[in-house]
Design a protein around this nucleic acid. Structure first.
Lengths: 199, 199
DNA sequence: TGTACATCAGTGAACGCGCGTTCACTGATGTAC
DNA sequence: TGTACATCAGTGAACGCGCGTTCACTGATGTAC
C-alpha cells in the first residue's frame, strides 16, 4: 500500500487548483489537459489516475467552487463575519472593487464563467445555483431587515453585483469599466438601504 | 462576372446568421465550421470564399451584433421608440422577461457570451462595449431626467438587466430564475424612478 | 533495525479522432458577339 | 434573340495538426518478515 492517502488527495487537490485557475482564465476549451498538469508540476499521463476525463475534472472544479468558495472566512481580503452589522455593504464593495475587476486567476466563479455554465448540463447549473443562493442568503442576512421583501432586494443586489462585474470585464475601456463598478456599487448600497455616505 | 454581388452578400449574410445562432447557443468551440455551413444549407469548402478563418467569422458575428442588434426598430416584440415616455421601463421589462430568458437562438449578445468576450481580444471587447454603451444611452434618455446623475443610474440599471439575465440563465431551478427576474425588474424600475405599480 | 517485496502514482511516447483548412473540380450565371 | 465563353461560388474529398486518451514502464513508498 504505497503512497499515503494524504499524498493522493494532495496531488488531486493540486490538479484541481491549477485547473480552476486556468479554466477561469481561458475557459474549458482554451486549456489542454497537458497544460493543467504542467501547471501542477506533473505530466499528462498521470491525469487519468485521478479523473475519468477532462469533463469530469471540469465538473469537480465547479463543485469545488462551493465546497471551498472562499465565502467562509475571508473573501478578497474582506473578513466575512455574518454577525457584523455592515456585512452587506462590505460584500458589495469588495465584489465590485477594482481588485476583483483585476483578479484574473481566482475571481468569483459566477463572474468567470456564466456563459459556459449556461451552455453546460444540469450539474453545472446546480453548482452555479448553490453559489448564487449562498450569496443571496448572506446579503439578505446583512440587510437592514426593515422590509418584508428583504429576499427580493437581496436577489436584485446579487444580480447587480454579478452583472456589474461581468459587463465591466467584457468591456474594453478601463475608465468606463471603473465608472460602471462605481455606479453599480452606489446603486446596490441604495437598494440595500445602506447609503451611509454619498448621495 | 457571374453571380451578382447581391447573391454573394446574401450568402455571406446567411452564414453569419447561422453562425450567430449557433455561437450563441454553443459558444465558439462548441460549433464546427461544417455545422455552421450545414445550417446555412451549404457545404464546408465554400466557407473560405467568404471568410479567412473561423475566428474571422466570430469577429464578424460580434460586429454584426451592433450593426444589426435589433435595437433600432423593435426588440423582442417591443417597438423601441426613443421618444416614448415609458421607453425605460419598457426595455427593462422586455429585457428581464420570461420570453428573453427562454430565447435560446438570439438573446441579447451581452447575455449570451460575456465570459467568452472577457477572454477574447480587444476587438471583441470593443464590440461588447458598443452594445453596452448603446443600451446605457437608451436607458439614460428614457430616465425621468430629474437627477443629474442619470448616467450613473442608467449604468446601474444596465448592469442589473445583464446580471439578472446572466444569472437566471446559469441557474438550474426555473422558479428561482423567475423570482430573480421579477426581483431585478422591480429593483431596476425603482432605481429608474419608474415605480408606477407595485411597492 | 534492515532487507526483499508488492503496489501503484507518476512518466512520456504513441495512438487516433475531430475539425480547421486546402484543393482540384463542377456547374450556375452574367457578358460578349 | 441565341450561343460560346469566362468567371468564380460552391462542392466534397483529403490533409494534417492538436489534443484527449491509452499504455507499457519506472521508481518511490509502505509493509512483512
Amino acid at each position: 500500500m504505497p503512497y499515503s492517502k494524504t499524498h493522493l488527495r494532495e496531488t488531486k487537490a493540486k490538479i484541481v487548483r491549477s485547473a480552476r485557475k486556468l479554466f477561469n482564465r481561458f475557459g474549458f476549451d482554451g486549456v489542454t489537459v497537458a497544460q493543467i498538469m504542467a501547471d501542477a508540476n506533473l505530466t499528462v499521463g498521470g491525469f487519468y489516475r485521478h479523473f475519468g476525463s477532462k469533463s469530469d475534472l471540469y465538473a469537480e472544479v465547479l463543485q469545488c467552487f462551493f465546497t471551498d468558495p472562499g465565502w467562509a472566512g475571508t473573501w478578497k481580503g474582506v473578513h466575512v463575519d455574518l454577525t457584523a452589522a455592515d456585512i452587506g455593504p462590505q460584500i458589495v464593495r469588495a465584489y465590485l472593487s477594482r481588485q476583483h475587476l483585476e483578479e484574473v486567476d481566482n475571481p468569483c466563479p459566477m463572474v468567470a464563467l456564466p456563459s459556459d455554465v449556461a451552455r453546460s448540463d444540469k450539474s453545472a447549473k446546480q453548482a452555479y445555483q448553490v453559489v448564487f443562493k449562498a450569496t443571496v442568503d448572506v446579503l439578505q442576512q446583512g440587510s437592514r431587515g426593515v422590509d418584508h421583501q428583504a429576499r427580493a432586494t437581496a436577489l436584485a443586489i446579487a444580480a447587480l453585483c454579478v452583472g456589474g462585474m461581468v459587463a465591466a470585464r467584457a468591456i474594453d475601456d478601463r475608465a468606463l469599466a471603473d465608472e460602471l463598478c462605481v455606479a453599480a456599487t452606489s446603486a446596490a448600497l441604495k437598494l440595500g438601504g445602506w447609503n451611509s455616505a454619498g448621495s
